[in-house]
């Protein structure tokens, strides 16, 4: 990562709202973050906090008839949100791509794995059928799929979950994008395969100057891969910090709660896992003040009335909590 360079992607005050029957829901409610070239940024939070919607909004994959995104998403000096659909389409896959959560459903069952990777190559790199196929096989080899020549000609159902996720990664990386959103790339896999996929992603990243936004709720994966972490809650950024300080000294009670709920092997086996009480608030009926206050263990008077401002502290940390503001 190189902090002296300008950020590759800057998200500024991005708001994504969905039009539902019950009203407008802000799934992402004014978030800011930067990604620098070659960096791995972790985006953490509970289900429903807006992590995936953030990625989809940046790539403009949400259906415009049901969702609108406001704010700025500056990628290489241009606002992605202002681009023509055609220009945006050319950026998808070639410059920014995405790895999806569900390896079982993210490959088309009726096209061979090779065809699906080659499709993207033909589109962006203008390769002919044969060259695209060769490169697809190479990509499968790169993601360490054994006998890639045979696998390329097979349909997705012949591949195991782990292999499908590798193929999905090959598809996302085939045009050497400079930014990849990995949306829970390991969630649907079993633990041993998870470790392999993380190792693979790490390995692939080291070989290039690619930036990765790793979306997950698995803090173990974050600790392993990310350099910097953005914690989201109810559509907002609540804390951001480099990975080590975040784990050692979390400032926002929500981050603390997340870290406390990691299971630790203890001798007695009797200790109950600490959970954060309650659930993510309904986005239609957000609590007044800080959106986390109904679940917060250190709630104060002011939390119920006023939403806390984002406070920058130390060199590269920030948090939105009255506790931090008081310090």
């Amino acid at each position: 990562m190189n902090r002296s360079e300008p950020p590759l992607l800057s998200v500024r005050n991005m708001i994504t709202s969905f039009h539902t029957h019950d009203g407008i829901v802000n799934a992402v409610n004014g978030i800011d973050f930067d990604i620098f070239p070659g960096e791995t940024l972790g985006l953490v939070g509970e289900s429903g906090c807006g992590k995936s919607v953030t990625a989809m909004s940046v790539l403009r994959l949400l259906n415009p008839s049901s969702a609108t995104t406001l704010g700025e998403v500056i990628f290489k000096g241009e606002n992605l949100l202002d681009m023509t659909p055609e220009k945006m389409r050319l950026i998808r896959g070639s410059e920014i791509s995405m790895i999806f959560q569900e390896p079982m459903t993210s490959l088309n069952p009726i096209l061979t794995v090779g065809e699906q990777i080659a499709e993207s190559l033909r589109l962006h790199e203008k390769l002919d059928q044969e060259k695209a196929w060769e490169k697809a096989v190479q990509m499968l080899k790169l993601v360490q799929i054994p006998s890639p020549e045979i696998r390329a000609g097979q349909y997705p159902h012949k591949l195991s979950g782990g292999m499908r996720q590798r193929a999905m990664i090959a598809m996302a990386l085939c045009c050497s994008p400079c930014l990849v959103f990995a949306d829970e790339p390991t969630t649907a896999l079993d633990v041993t395969i998870q470790a392999q996929i993380i190792r693979l992603l790490d390995h692939l990243k080291k070989g290039s100057n690619m930036s990765v936004v790793l979306i997950t709720h698995d803090l173990g994966v974050i600790a392993r891969m990310a350099a910097r972490v953005v914690v989201m809650y109810a559509g907002k950024v609540v804390e951001e910090a480099p990975v080590v300080p975040l784990f050692h000294d979390p400032r926002h009670p929500y981050t603390r709660g997340l870290l406390n709920s990691i299971p630790v092997l203890k001798n007695d086996g009797q200790t109950r896992l600490t959970e954060i009480p309650g659930i993510v608030p309904n986005l239609l009926h957000m609590p007044e003040g800080c959106s986390f206050h109904p679940r917060c263990s250190r709630v104060m008077d002011i939390c119920t009335k006023k939403s806390p401002p984002m406070v920058h502290f130390m060199e590269n940390r920030r948090a939105a909590c009255w506790l931090v503001s008081d310090e």
Binding site: R92, G93, F100, T105, S106, N108
Partner: peptide, 12 residues
């Protein structure tokens, strides 16, 4: 289906 979304994410 996710594969349609994945295809869109590839710029198809």
């Amino acid at each position: 289906e996710v594969y349609v979304e994945a295809a869109r994410a590839c710029g198809t």
